[in-house]
Write a protein that binds this DNA or RNA. Structure first.
Lengths: 219, 219
DNA sequence: CAGTGTGAAGTTGTTCACAGCA
DNA sequence: TGCTGTGAACAACTTCACACTG
């Protein structure tokens, strides 16, 4: 299967979610000087079935060598091109509170082709300041700057009560993809990409497992 | 199907992940004074198939009324008991950096039965201080305090290079469940619950959708 | 009827089994 | 023998179809 076909029909989401893991793992192995890496080896470290690894990597277009594995350097480059990690997108973040600030400083975004170039808020105390080199503007400046810098991707880290309104504004200003960190279920038109990252979903999963475990142990 | 059976055989993970959404939605509707709520109505707001909603809610043990829906108050209580939201677990957080600090202040944890009661770090400047009322201790205090307070759940927000070591220590100190916010693939014994919350997996999904969209538009 | 509740069908993702290869 | 690569079996989750109910 050729890599370009996937661009059209879309890659399975679980595969996409695993790509950063592969990338991180392969990158480290490259730094350690490894030349070849096999799917079973990757699978063992990442706790994945080796067939899964093989199928995932096939999407990037690399070919492995029987008995030897994948050439580390080729594989790393394949993942990066396939995922677009080396093509940097500029991103705006709205809501320079605690979480927003932490996100701006989050390490490794650039490694994945993303650069937060400006933050926005409506708190006069914050406007004009910088968060780790990233300037904070009043939300009013969003539209013009987005146009100027051709920004299509926005992150929302506002208080929940502002989330929907901010999303509506962003969309009216030409944003195509929104990454929402608030617990709000933001409603967007069908053509807009929205990704909700809810801490609570993950919390629910782990709490459920923990309670399940504890209830079994108490039998 | 009875609620208790699920405790034993485990609930589908997607269902668990949706529970906080239902909870949040139903809670708001209760505040707004709604008495009954139907699965189709919930589905429309949360962009879920109505059968999905029905099946998910069935796990909590509630019964709905044909033509009317679910009694809001009963439903809310059912979700909370089912998920254990009203039984508070004390949690420790290791790594009082930017992200850790943001997490400590994250609103709504208590609503989901979780309370971060202490943070730990190895930076002398931070020790003795408080983050929104939560005391910061030296990591050396972890073991004794965990025993004292019967803490079984730990959050890791350290720099990546310390993540594995912190996890190993936590486990040796009796922690049963770890919520890992670092990009590291932490290795744990099989009986330990680990939940990796990687910002990068979500980032990869949205970037992939965005690139896909843009590549189609440029045809 | 407009909803619940559920078995059956459909879809998606994972794992198995094995052919081919060096 | 230990790997890649892939079609087929399997498992998990979602959606459909419909009987049932007030």
């Amino acid at each position: 299967m050729e890599a370009n076909e996937n661009k059209i029909k879309g890659i399975p989401e679980p595969t996409v979610r695993r790509m950063p893991q592969y990338h991180n793992y392969v990158k480290n192995k490259k730094i350690q000087g490894e030349i070849y890496l096999s799917a079973p080896a990757i699978g063992r470290s990442l706790r994945l079935d080796s067939t899964q690894v093989t199928k995932d990597l096939a999407y990037t277009g690399v070919a492995g060598k029987p008995r030897i594995g994948y050439h580390v350097e080729t594989l790393l480059a394949a993942i990066e091109t396939f995922m677009g990690f080396n093509q940097i997108d500029h991103v705006f973040l709205v809501g320079a509170g605690n979480f927003g600030t932490a996100l701006v400083g989050y390490p490794g975004f650039d490694e994945y082709g993303v650069k937060i170039v400006a933050a926005f808020d409506n708190d006069p105390k914050k406007i004009g300041s910088k968060i780790r080199g990233v300037p904070v503007f009043h939300i009013d400046k969003f539209r013009d700057l987005a146009q100027e810098m051709n920004v299509k991707f926005g992150i929302i880290t506002t208080p929940p009560q502002n989330a929907q309104q901010v999303a509506d504004l962003m969309i009216s200003w030409g944003i195509l993809a929104i990454w929402n960190f608030t617990p709000v279920n933001i409603q967007v038109p069908k053509h807009i990409i929205i990704q909700n990252t809810s801490i609570y979903a993950n919390l629910a999963v782990i709490m459920n497992k923990l309670h399940h475990k504890l209830s079994i142990e108490n039998l």
